[in-house]
Simulated scan of single mutants.
Amino acid sequence: MESKFNRRLIIMGVLAFIGAALLVATVALTCTTLVALITGVDGLPQDLDVREVRGEHLENASIIHLTDQDLEQFPALDSVIRGDNRDPHPWKLEGSPNDDPDERTIGRAPVTGTEHLVLIESFGIDAKNPPYLEYNGAYYYIRTLIH
C-alpha cells in the first residue's frame, strides 16, 4: 500500500511540475504578445536627430565618409542631410545645443525600428563615442530619440 502511495506522489509531483512550466510559458508568451501589440511590429516610434559639427569636435575623431549610395540605403538620414527635413537656416552662434557654436541640429526625421538597427550596426550611432559622418564636406553625428 505504501508503494502505491509513493507512486501516486511521484506522478502528482511530475504533473505539478509540468503544469507550473506550462503556466510560466503561457505568461511569458502573453506578455511578449502584449508588448508587441502595444509598440507595433516595428518597435517604438523614433526620430533620427542629425547634428552638424565643425571645429574642435573633429580633432582625433573617427570619420565615416558617406556616399550617395549610403544615403539611398537610409531614407531617414537622406531626408535630413539632403532632403525636406533639413533646416535651411545658416549657423547661429546662440541657441545651438549646449550653446556650442560649433554644433547645430539640422533636422529630424521619423525612422523605423529596422532602419534604426541597421544605422546602429553601420555607424554605431548609440555608442559612447559615435563616429562622425561626412558628406560633401560637412560633418554630422546622429542619434535616435524615442517618443
Rank of each mutant, 00 (worst) to 15 (best):
D102V: 03
H89M: 10
N85M: 09
S3C: 03
E56W: 10
G83H: 01
L66I: 08
V14M: 11
E121H: 07
E56R: 13
D100C: 07
R108M: 14
G113S: 09
R8F: 05
N60T: 09
E115C: 04
C31L: 15
A28W: 04
L58D: 01
H116K: 11
Y132R: 11
V53F: 08
H65P: 03
D84H: 07
G40D: 04
I106C: 03
T39A: 08
K128Y: 10
S3G: 05
P88F: 09
L66R: 04
E103I: 10
R54H: 15
S122F: 03
R54Y: 10
L23D: 07
G13I: 06
A138F: 09
L15R: 15
G13V: 05
E59S: 11
P131V: 01
T26L: 12
G13T: 14
A127I: 07
Y139L: 08
N129E: 11
E56D: 13
L71D: 06
H57G: 06
V14E: 04
P131Q: 02
G107R: 02
D87A: 04
I11K: 15
G124L: 02
V41T: 13
S3N: 09
M1L: 10
T144G: 01
S62N: 13
G13S: 14
D102H: 11
A109R: 02
N136D: 12
G137H: 02
A28H: 07
T114Y: 12
S122Y: 04
R104D: 00
L44N: 10
Y139S: 09
D100H: 03
I64H: 12
D70E: 11
D68E: 13
L37K: 09
H89A: 15
V41I: 09
A127R: 15
Y139C: 01
I142K: 00
E103V: 12
P101I: 12
H89Y: 12
G40R: 06
R7G: 12
L117G: 07
N129L: 13
V111S: 08
R108H: 05
I146M: 08
S3P: 00
L15P: 03
T144E: 04
D70K: 09
V111Y: 04
T105W: 06
